[in-house]
Design a protein around this nucleic acid. Structure first.
Lengths: 223, 223
DNA sequence: CGTGTAGTTGAGATGCGTCAATAGTTGTGG
DNA sequence: CCACAACTATTGACGCATCTCAACTACACG
């Protein structure tokens, strides 16, 4: 049985280390593993909202397209993170593979067979939905009135904190993706990164690999 | 008992017309009614995340303050809407009364007394949390790369669709609030409204009352 | 009637977008 | 291994939308 205290525990960040896959749920709530090639669409804006997903490998972007070809990226989802929690019976965003990636999908329907559900599962997906809510709020804050430098600095700090390695950040996404995420143009992102490198705050071994050499300065800029 | 199908039903927008108050829950999950004067704080960023809320009368803003006095408004909450769903054990935003208003608070703890919960209640608050997620996503989209005119037009359309009257919109919030919500300055909001009035798309009987006289044009601008 | 707050309007400064050219990177095929 | 093409990223010049600073107006309230 699920009860509200478990949901609240999840909402409160008292995350239990559970994994929503067949192994750990004893076969009761299986997830279906799927692979997607770079730029493949996982689901589209308006598609039936039948599943939510967990990133196993690679990076996924959830985004919306506007008339005029403009695109706003809502979020990047890294390995271990969940996405696809949309209100309504249709997805309100599209999800695409930023690079080749593997995800596990969980059909909502799969949980309701006999009307009862392990409260650990319910708590877990609620936790992830709330996590996404928080990210969306932070993102809106960022897009509000931050300068280009602040946006890029905050983005780098965020990616560094979510990445597995501390040494450097390997950006799976193109400059264009970063720009659409930050509400900037590709050119401005590129210029800003160049400025940061010139100021010796970051180093760029390759175009998509970034090492933060002066974290304090970066944090100062992002605030 | 709560089960996932009910949660999913809520997530899918199959909203049941329930009210989370004492009357309709038979006293099992009471909400506490509270009044707040204009600009009073309902909870602060960092406060213990012990309750969520429903607006009964007035308008509530959830926002975040930045060093330098800058403020980003995350959302306005109108009568009937819920707010205060924050991930973590602390609120990540502040909530303030835009005007004198009345809210009902629901303590998370109040639901867990005997470990069981009416599934209608769980489904309902999950629905509202997802609703807030969607609003945050739309807001981020808006802040992304919309022009000032598009932002203001979209704001007016949104407020009109959420307001109870069709005749006109009574804005409870100051220009400054609108600006902080749209990521603009007060001056730009004011100028944009003046432009819309000059173009005969809106009329302003008083400064805070707006009548949309050419909805089609407004929608065209907002897209 | 005076004072304070909210809103409007104007003029100038500037940060970012746009357009355009250049450079670097990746992949393919000879 | 090199040559070429296609794509991705960087850099530059310029224009414009919005911010900033400032003056003025409207309105509410004592």
């Amino acid at each position: 049985m699920m009860n509200l205290s478990t949901v609240k525990a999840a909402a409160s960040g008292q995350r239990r280390s559970l994994a929503l896959d067949r192994r750990e749920t004893g076969g009761g709530a299986p997830g279906l593993a799927i692979r997607f090639a770079q730029d493949a669409q996982i689901y589209g804006d308006g598609d039936e909202n039948g599943s939510f997903y967990k990133v196993v490998a690679g990076v996924v972007r959830t985004c919306k397209f506007r008339i005029g070809g403009r695109r706003q990226i809502d979020a990047f989802h890294l390995p271990g993170e969940f996405f696809g929690f949309d209100a309504g019976d249709r997805h309100s965003l599209s999800a695409e593979a930023v690079c080749d990636c593997a995800v596990v999908s969980y059909r909502w329907r799969a949980f309701k067979s006999d009307g009862e559900i392990d409260d650990r599962l319910a708590a877990q997906f609620f936790f992830h939905a709330m996590q996404n809510l928080r990210r969306a709020q932070d993102h809106a804050l960022l897009l509000g009135h931050y300068s280009a430098a602040q946006k890029v600095a905050a983005f780098l700090i965020d990616m560094a904190s979510r990445a597995s390695f501390d040494e450097f950040i390997d950006l799976a996404m193109a400059r264009h993706d970063i720009a659409d995420y930050l509400g900037l143009t590709m050119e401005t992102v590129s210029r800003t990164l160049s400025n940061l490198e010139r100021a010796a705050i970051i180093a760029r071994p390759t175009t998509r690999r970034i090492r933060i050499t002066n974290e304090q300065a970066l944090r100062r800029i992002s605030s």
